[in-house]
Every structure is written in C-alpha cells, then in structure tokens.
Computed example of a mutant assay.
Amino acid sequence: MGGAHEHGDKDFTGDGFPDEVEPYSVKPDAWEAKYSGSCHCGAVTFEVKDDPVASVCCHCTTCQIVHGATSQRAVLFKKDCVRFPKEAIEHLAFYQTHDKVRSARLAVICLANMWLAFPALFKFGEGAKEPESFQVKNHIFYSQRMLDLERKPGVKFWSEAQDKSEEM
C-alpha cells in the first residue's frame, strides 16, 4: 500500500513497550488528565494531560481504504502527555498499513514522539462540543481527495504532507 503511511506506522521504538518507558509508567500522583477517552468497546482507555499539538484531516488513499471514508481526522499529542492504564495495554494492537499486518505493538504512530488519536474516541461530557484545540487546522494529501471542501479562514490545504508539499 505505502503512500502517506509507508513510514508513519513503522515501529521506531523497538518491539516492546516496557513499563519503565514513559509515558506508560506515569505515577498517578504526577498526572492530571485534561481529556479522556476509550475505544468503542471500552477495553482500551486513555488520558491526555494537554491539548493536541496538531489536528489534521488526511485525504490520502490509504486513509480512504483503511477507514472506508473520504478522509480521516486525527489529533496528535506529545507522547509524554498520554497515559494508558496497565489493564488497557494488553488490548492494544497496531495495524501496519504498508504490510497489511496487525501486530501486538502499541497503537501509536511514533514519529517525533507523537501519539495519534481519532477525535471521536474522546469523551467531552454530556452535550459538550469538541474543544477548539481539536478543530482541523490542516488538510493533508488534499490532492488525493474525493470531495472538495469549503475553505475556512485559518485552515490550510496541503497537496501532500503538511509543510513538505505545496499549499493548495
């Protein structure tokens, strides 16, 4: 498959995720969650203690195929701002799009110590709307889009990777 995710979903941190490696061993008294969420069945829960450093919408063909949608939204956090309870870690898995392989490695995109999550996994409270920090600021791989989107002020559209391609 390759494309946008050929390098983005490789395990750059090694095969395992030992407990002594941050952020998976954060002491409870040193943590104050700002947002929390879970997978659909609730087996994997997580917390983040800061706003995302980026919020993107990817229009690459890999995201279209993997997610069965015209695009995929994602928020990125610094890995040291993310915490998974020990009981959740056994349920984590990672699907490598370029190899079409599901592995037992952690469900984290590991580039520049970042963690990628889908905004729909977060719980903001009854009736609460998604925070401003989760709003899409960049559309990436827009040259591969299926639909044209309305342009909003302050939102950038990149032909391929953000800051590594021409702005459209």
Rank of each mutant, 00 (worst) to 15 (best):
P153Y: 02
K152F: 02
A43W: 08
C110G: 14
I140F: 01
M146P: 02
A4W: 06
K137V: 10
K129V: 12
F157K: 04
K86Q: 10
V53K: 08
A104S: 11
W31P: 09
G14K: 05
Q144K: 13
Q72T: 14
I65S: 15
K123R: 08
C58E: 00
C57G: 10
E47M: 08
V44L: 02
T45C: 03
Q144N: 11
V108T: 15
C57N: 12
P28Y: 11
H40K: 12
G3Y: 00
A112Q: 13
S25R: 08
E87W: 04
V82W: 00
G3F: 00
M114I: 10
K34Y: 04
P131W: 01
I109S: 15
W31R: 07
P18C: 03
D99P: 07
K27A: 06
P119W: 01
S103A: 04
E130T: 05
A107W: 05
E6A: 14
G14A: 05
R145S: 03
P18E: 02
Q144V: 08
G14S: 06
K10S: 07
G42C: 02
F122D: 01
D80H: 06
E132S: 12
L147M: 13
A54W: 03
F84S: 03
K123T: 10
F84R: 03
D99R: 15
E150M: 06
F77C: 02
E130Y: 02
F12R: 04
H59T: 05
H67M: 12
C63Y: 01
P18D: 01
D50Y: 05
W158E: 02
W115R: 12
I65N: 15
E32Y: 11
E130N: 04
V66S: 10
G37R: 00
V56A: 01
